[in-house]
Computed example of a mutant assay.
Amino acid sequence: MKDLGILLESGTNEMELLTVVVNAQPFGMNVAKVQSIQQYDPGAITALPEAEKGVLGMLLYRDTTIPVLDLARILDIDLDRGEVEPLREIIVVTEFNNSVTGFRVQGVKRIHRLSWKEFVPLDQLFEDNACFTGSVNIENSQVLVLDLEYILSSFFPDQVIEEVDEEMIQKGNTISRDQLEIVFAEDSPTIQKGVFSALKKAGFEKITPFLDGEKALNYIRSHYKTGKKQELNHVVLITDIEMPRMDGLTLCRVIKQDPELHPIFVVIFSSLINSQMIAKCEQVKSDDYVTKPETNRLITILDQRCG
């Protein structure tokens, strides 16, 4: 078994991508979501009766039972069992959204350090294929990057988007939530739509969404660069960490280092929040951080700004 750690410094706009093999095709996983890799042992998997397509079963991992998903089935890739050796198959154990999940693949290659500027979002024509967030060019070939949050949401929706409590909605009657101007940077269309809908339902009216950090920064600079400090107290940036062109940590660092924009309240809203990532959030001077799918906690933080 091999553990993988978060090696990058904060706000460098770099990512580390683990290339995994499904049948013979390479795909990318963000190393920040990968906890460990281990050899696949069919005997260690407990099958689930009438399980959904793609659910391989349950695995006892570090004294905890975790679900194991089969990427080949999820991606509709037919495995040529004459070419695949079970002893060479791998379980990639991931941790994000406060949950641990295993993914069976047919092998792993290596880790590549890349800039988020090299990350190419998929064209809108391919938006329906939400299993991927985009692609990167590695060794003269395009590697599709897996949207693990979307894949997990297909099986366990509550682990990705939390329903807004009715009590939280009613609380909006006593709080002027519509006074906040929210800039929301999130590259996953599925997550963006879910959170956008939840915030609107709670009574936040002024929300401007973006699918990457660079576009969010350009918008902030064009709208708030010459704003008065008092006006910026009503501006909140909610940003994911993993995003093309510019990641959320870099976006936060740039804003907090800007003498005009630094009063903007920045909330890191990510599936990667753990002790290591909290340290990174603090290094780039974020004002707060929330792990997905804690939408109600996010709203509580926003309510505090409404004062």
Rank of each mutant, 00 (worst) to 15 (best):
L59D: 00
A47S: 11
I37E: 12
I111F: 03
R104G: 02
V108D: 07
L71S: 06
L69C: 13
E89V: 09
A44E: 13
G107K: 05
A44D: 10
V108H: 06
G107I: 07
F96V: 11
E85G: 01
D63E: 15
A44H: 09
E50R: 09
Q38D: 12
G102Q: 04
G107A: 08
L71E: 08
V84I: 15
H112P: 03
I90P: 00
P42V: 02
T101P: 01
P49Y: 14
L56D: 01
V108Q: 04
E95T: 11
E83N: 11
T94Q: 07
I90Y: 03
T46G: 05
R62Y: 10
T46F: 09
Q38T: 13
R104D: 05
A47W: 02
G107Y: 03
F119W: 15
E83W: 05
N98V: 08
F103S: 09
G107M: 05
I74D: 04
I45K: 00
D76V: 06
G107D: 07
Q38E: 15
I77E: 11
Y61F: 13
L69S: 08
L71T: 02
L75K: 03
T94D: 02
M58Y: 05
P67E: 10
S115H: 08
G43A: 08
V92C: 11
V68Y: 02
N97S: 15
L114K: 07
K109N: 15
W116S: 04
P67N: 09
I77H: 05
H112D: 15
V108P: 02
E95F: 06
G43M: 03
L79D: 06
V93M: 06
R110M: 15
G82D: 13
L79G: 07
G43I: 00
I111Q: 06
K109C: 12
R110P: 09
F103C: 11
V92R: 03
Y40C: 01
V84S: 03
V105Q: 05
I90C: 09
I37S: 14
G102Y: 04
I66T: 02
D76G: 08
I111G: 05
L79M: 13
I74P: 01
S115F: 07
E52N: 11
T46R: 10
A44Q: 11
P86M: 08
K117Y: 02
E95D: 11
N97Y: 10
H112W: 13
E95I: 03
G57K: 05
G82K: 07
I77N: 07
G102P: 01
N98G: 14
V108M: 10
V55Y: 01
F103E: 10
I74W: 02
N97P: 06
D63L: 12
G57T: 09
V105M: 10
D78S: 14
V55W: 05
Q39I: 13
F119M: 14
K109V: 10
Q106W: 01
K53D: 12
T65Q: 07
R73P: 02
L75G: 04
K53E: 14
F103A: 11
V68C: 04
L59Y: 06
P86A: 03
N98E: 14
K53L: 11
V100F: 06
K117Q: 12
M58G: 04
V100G: 01
R113H: 13
L69R: 09
L114I: 13
V55D: 02
I77P: 03
A47G: 04
A47T: 09
H112S: 14
F96T: 12
V92L: 10
E50N: 12
D80M: 05
D70I: 08
K109L: 14
K117M: 07
V108S: 06
D78H: 09
F96K: 12
D70K: 12
I77T: 12
